Amino acid sequence: MLRGVTIVDSAGVVRQQARLVDAYAPQLVTTTPPAASYRYFMPHRALPALARQLGRARQTALFLGAGDFHHLTAAMALAWSEGPDGAPSRPMALVVFDAHPEWSVPPPGYIHCGSWLPEVLAMRHVAAVALVGVGPLSSQGLLAPRLLQAVAPAAREGRLRVYPALRATADELEAALPRLRRVTSLEAGLEAAVDDLVAFLGDAAVYVSVDKDVVRGEELPGRWGGGLLAARDLLRTIEALTMRLGDTRLVGLDICGEYEPRLPLPALDPVVALHEAFNLHLLELVLARRATGHPSGPQLAAA
């Protein structure tokens, strides 16, 4: 299980979630340049330095901010390429809950919030990647051959597995990637999907990344629209996964997709309250002890 909560310096709205701050006294991790400067895009050359700085958040639940910062997950994955003593890390598996597959093509020399997955698949210590909860793909142009060529080798090798929300999307994937094994959709049942997912992860250390846009928009409104999963089903899936993994396999988790209100005083915004309630439920599932802050680093005061 994880120990403590961390907020990266891009996630200002999380610092205004008073109940969360009071319960967990999160550590604030600041980066140089500030992580907020990497909204949407990040130069590829910045990835190693950012990984070293965000590496301080390992073994915690890390809030990245809006979904515009989901590519920071690539930096966290790179941070796990070696252990604390500098020795090579044990193989790592990444489980991503997201309405989008994150395999778009970025501008040359950049990583962006919708294109970071191929970057992670290229990391030698990453043994497996699972995408859970993705929505329809062909209607968004996300099954175009020029996009799939970046992930097709990993799919053929059995290192990438997709668990879409709908069976229809599973059929689309199987047609677009003919060598892909049969795809298990969440529509077939959460229990069956978790069984398949746990078998796929093997004995690797597991890092979980949650973009809250995977949840239905009427439950958790956000910048990128909503997905197809009920919040309750997402939490049930994460709970089942963490219970099956045991206390030592889950080595990290990040959360993005925060709602950023345009008006001042976000603590009074009812949508922020919805996100805070979800965040609190999620933290109760993954932390070793409730209301335990990080042992070092600046503490945040409640808003």
Results as ranks from 00 to 15, higher is better:
Ala150Lys: 14
Ala128Ile: 01
Val162Met: 06
Ala155Leu: 04
Leu131Pro: 01
Ala165Gly: 04
His125Gly: 07
Glu119Leu: 10
Ala165Leu: 05
Arg159Asp: 00
Val151Ala: 04
Ala154Cys: 06
Leu166Asn: 03
Gly158Tyr: 12
Tyr163Arg: 08
Ser139Glu: 15
Gln140Ile: 00
Ala122Met: 04
Ala154Ile: 07
Glu157Asn: 10
Leu166Arg: 14
Arg161His: 13
Ser139Phe: 13
Arg161Lys: 08
Leu148Lys: 07
Arg124Cys: 07
Leu131Asn: 01
Glu119Ala: 15
Leu148Arg: 11
Val126Glu: 02
Leu148Pro: 08
Val134Trp: 05
Tyr163Leu: 12
Leu148Gln: 03
Ser138Gly: 04
Val132Asp: 09
Leu121Tyr: 10
Pro145Tyr: 09
Ala122Val: 01
Val134Thr: 15
Leu160Arg: 06
Val126Ile: 12
Leu131Trp: 04
Ala128Glu: 12
Arg156Ile: 03
Leu121His: 03
Val134Ile: 15
Met123Glu: 01
Ala144Glu: 15
Leu137Phe: 10
Leu147Gln: 08
Ser138Asn: 01
Leu137Gln: 14
Arg161Asn: 12
Arg161Ala: 05
Arg161Glu: 13
Val134Ala: 07
Arg146Ile: 09
Arg124Ser: 15
Ala168Ile: 00
Leu121Glu: 04
Arg167Gln: 14
Ala168Arg: 14
Leu143Met: 12
Pro153Gln: 07
Leu121Arg: 07
Gly158Val: 03
Val132His: 05
Ala154Gln: 11
Pro136Asn: 09
Tyr163Met: 02
Val120Ala: 13
Val134Tyr: 06
Arg146Gln: 13
Pro164Asp: 11
Gln140Arg: 15
Gln140Gly: 10
Gln149Tyr: 03
Glu119Met: 06
Leu147Gly: 05
Pro164Ala: 07
Leu160Cys: 11
Val151Lys: 08
Val134Arg: 01
Val126Pro: 04
Gln149Met: 05
Ala154Glu: 04
Ala152Pro: 08
Gly133Asn: 01
Pro136Trp: 08
Leu147Tyr: 09
Pro145Ala: 02
Val132Trp: 05
Val120Ser: 08
Ala155Met: 05
Gly158Trp: 02
Arg156Ser: 13
Val126Ala: 05
Gln140Trp: 07
Arg161Gln: 12
Leu147Thr: 06
Leu121Ser: 04
Gln140Met: 09
